[in-house]
Design a protein around this nucleic acid. Structure first.
Lengths: 219, 219
DNA sequence: ATACATATTTTCAATTTGCAACTAACAAAA
DNA sequence: TTTTGTTAGTTGCAAATTGAAAATATGTAT
């Protein structure tokens, strides 16, 4: 008789804070690694069907109280030594939210740590985070993914800053706007201006039908 | 007590034949779905650690007798209804080989079917194949992935035809070669010419350090 | 030799890009 | 009321890149 395989879902929840890419970590209540910071995770249920997206949504909601506008399966990590309890698999997901969503309530306390310079995490969670950061940065070079790091409404300048922070490079304003125009995944919100001390900027939102738009690639 | 979750590895093995993208299917020996064509798959073992790549390599070797130069984790499909035996998860992989590798021996018989116009397959295998085809085609638009559909040595014209067949579009010869030159993932094989009735072409191979090179993308 | 087939490079107009300068809108200071 | 500062958004243009076709190269067959 083979030992039983334990399958969990773990979630890398990204946000942008102080110009850095950060993730949400929870302090574990139970052994193994009780009291240590780790990724939000939980067991998968049999009725969560087809892919494990429903399980990921539930785990995120139960552990952090949050709902993410973007949640994507990342990779499945498995093996006999990654969890001291024995043979296990983790179906890892990653999600993106705006910082303003991260208001801990009474039941849910979490910490926000920069992905660059993370401490040692339990299990193979450092490996999962590294994999997720790579995917986020790769995909941000050719898609509208970074939009989900912003609130529902944002200016083009804010969007450009978001891309720059995720990618770690600076972009040209006019080039950036030309490409956004071609891609057509944004929708101007009529009469909506964010007014400060200076010239107000037009507010935009993601088009309802556009969760992930791709820039031109090339062979 | 929850029911036990069964975890398998399933493999979508692509090749190009008659100008079409095809996959390898095996006739199942055991129930459920005995005698039906399905993806090569098998149980995962606890000692196959970290990610399940080792399990995928083993399953591919045992079921088909083949080793693929490219094998990548695709997606994990899970749920209570995808397998009539109960709660299950499949860690799906996809692999690429040249048609010449597909010589069935005495122990391993398999069939080759075009991915476009596939019959109904058992479990959720149609969904897995659709997911894999999408990934292969997407990734082929911006990477050196299609190289793995060719034999170890090939001409630039053959490589271009491979891209065209996978992507279903035609490419410009000089543009294609310019980009290949920039990317530098190929290595000319000195004094190697495939000679037919006409001018022989220079043979190339993938550079040893280049499993997957990416073309420029754009924000 | 000559014709022919395929491989590979070159040419060049048309388009796209990167960069910088320019205009616009607002608030606060003078 | 004019000026100044700051951010938003546009425009112009040289340089680089692209797409398509023509030119050149190298082999076989006759």
């Amino acid at each position: 008789m083979e030992p039983a395989l334990i399958v969990t879902v773990d979630i890398v929840l990204f946000t942008l804070s102080d110009g850095q890419l950060k993730i949400v970590l929870l302090r574990r209540e139970l052994d193994p690694y009780a009291q240590q910071l780790a990724l939000p995770g939980g067991y998968i249920h049999p009725e969560e069907d087809r892919d494990s997206l429903a399980a990921a949504e539930r785990v995120l909601r139960q552990k952090t109280g949050l709902v993410s506008p973007y949640l994507e399966q990342l990779f499945t990590f498995s093996g006999g030594v990654r969890d001291p309890r024995g043979w296990s698999a983790s179906i890892a997901y990653y999600a993106l939210v705006h910082e303003s969503v991260l208001q801990p309530d009474a039941e849910h306390r979490f910490e926000l740590l920069a992905v660059d310079g993370l401490p040692d995490l339990p299990f193979d969670h450092n490996r999962i985070v590294a994999h997720a950061s790579q995917r986020l940065r790769d995909k941000s070079t050719y898609s509208s993914l970074p939009c989900h790091l912003l609130p529902g409404q944002f200016t083009l300048t804010e969007l450009q800053h978001t891309y720059e922070q995720v990618l770690g490079i600076s972009l040209d304003k006019s080039v950036f706007r030309r490409k956004l125009g071609e891609l057509d995944f944004l929708e101007a919100i009529p009469n909506a201006m964010r007014s400060g001390k200076h010239r107000p900027a037009q507010l935009y939102k993601l088009r309802d039908d556009a969760r992930l738009a791709l820039f031109n690639k090339t062979v």
